[in-house]
Amino acid sequence: MANFVLVPGAWLGAWAWDEVAGLLRADGHGVYAVTLSGLADRFGPGAEEVGQAQHVADIVAVVEDNDLHDVVLAGHSYAGIPAGQAAAAIGERLRRMVYVDANVPIDGCSFADGWSEEGRAWLTDQLARAGGYWPPLTAEDYAGQDLTEPMITRIVDLSTPHPGRAIQEPARLPRPITELPTTYLKCLRDGATPTSTVLTHLKSPQWTLAELDTGHWPMISRPTELAKLLSALG
């Protein structure tokens, strides 16, 4: 059995993994869902100053403080960037890294660096208007993502602003992530193919591709299918 460390994406907390975590525990796995600093129940004054390096440290601390081995580390969306760095840092404790429809870290680049000039300008304006935070999505933004109305309501109600510094701070990789045993999970209703960076990484013999016919938040929309996929990797 594996020890699953589950990291939610932007605006979310450990709560996003509740159903998947329960299913994995029922299969006999250890499960540690992470709330990153400055989010969910860790949101508070000064959270906008939480950087990406702190999010990496949050994940590494869960592994080290609980003395975990045979770790399957799953990072969703934004969290692929800090989780990928953490995977490179925990060495032999790692069994597999799983990117859940996620961004992947590129050494020296931030979450926003791959965006267009127009996109970065929009983000800068968003952060300025929100006092250094990246505001959560609205209900309308979740349309077409295989989510029911109650699911969308839950996400919107529980989301918190995301620390702006975390999405602007560059990743630092202690080793190439293509050397790590990795599965990239593409959620097909949020685009049929991975990014060009991921496609290049998939040429590594250490990387494999998996797919789910759902939207960008599979832990909410398809928890049973996601847990089954993850459990098979463990």
Rank of each mutant, 00 (worst) to 15 (best):
R95A: 13
L230K: 01
E179L: 12
Y133S: 01
G30R: 03
A61E: 14
V104H: 13
L230A: 02
G46W: 08
D213I: 01
A79M: 01
T153D: 15
G144N: 07
A74K: 04
T182D: 07
I106C: 06
P135R: 03
A89K: 15
H201M: 03
W15P: 05
I106T: 13
Q85W: 06
A79S: 14
I155V: 15
A210M: 00
R165I: 08
E179F: 09
G9R: 11
H216V: 03
D27S: 11
H69D: 11
K228Y: 03
I59Q: 11
W122S: 12
A227Q: 03
A139V: 13
A61N: 14
A74N: 01
W134V: 14
V20A: 10
I81L: 05
I106W: 11
A112Q: 10
V198D: 12
L39I: 09
V98N: 05
K203T: 12
G131I: 10
N3H: 08
W134S: 12
A232K: 13
P136L: 07
N66H: 13
A26V: 00
S196C: 04
G75D: 04
L180I: 06
L123M: 15
D113N: 08
R42P: 09
I167V: 15
A79Y: 04
A166S: 15
D65Y: 05
V63W: 03
I220S: 02
P150Y: 06
R93M: 07
E49N: 12
G44P: 05
N66Q: 07
I167T: 13
V104F: 05
S159Q: 02
L229S: 10
S110V: 01
W207E: 03
A79I: 01
A87V: 11
V156C: 06
G51S: 09
L202C: 05
G191I: 01
S110P: 08
D18F: 09
A112L: 15
I81Y: 10
R189P: 02
A2I: 00
V71I: 04
E118M: 08
I155M: 15
Q168V: 00
G91P: 03
S196H: 07
D146W: 04
L23E: 11
G9L: 04
I155L: 14
L185P: 04
P136D: 07
A33D: 05
N3G: 07
A171F: 12
H29G: 02
G9W: 10
L6H: 06
G75L: 08
W122A: 12
T195H: 06
I81K: 10
D146Y: 07
D190K: 04
V5R: 05
G132M: 11
L73Q: 03
E169A: 02
V5F: 06
T197F: 04
Q126H: 03
T200D: 13
T148H: 09
A88H: 05
L147T: 02
L137A: 13
L188S: 08
D65G: 11
E179G: 14
Q52E: 13
R25N: 09
I167G: 05
T148Q: 09
I81R: 08
H29L: 01
W115A: 13
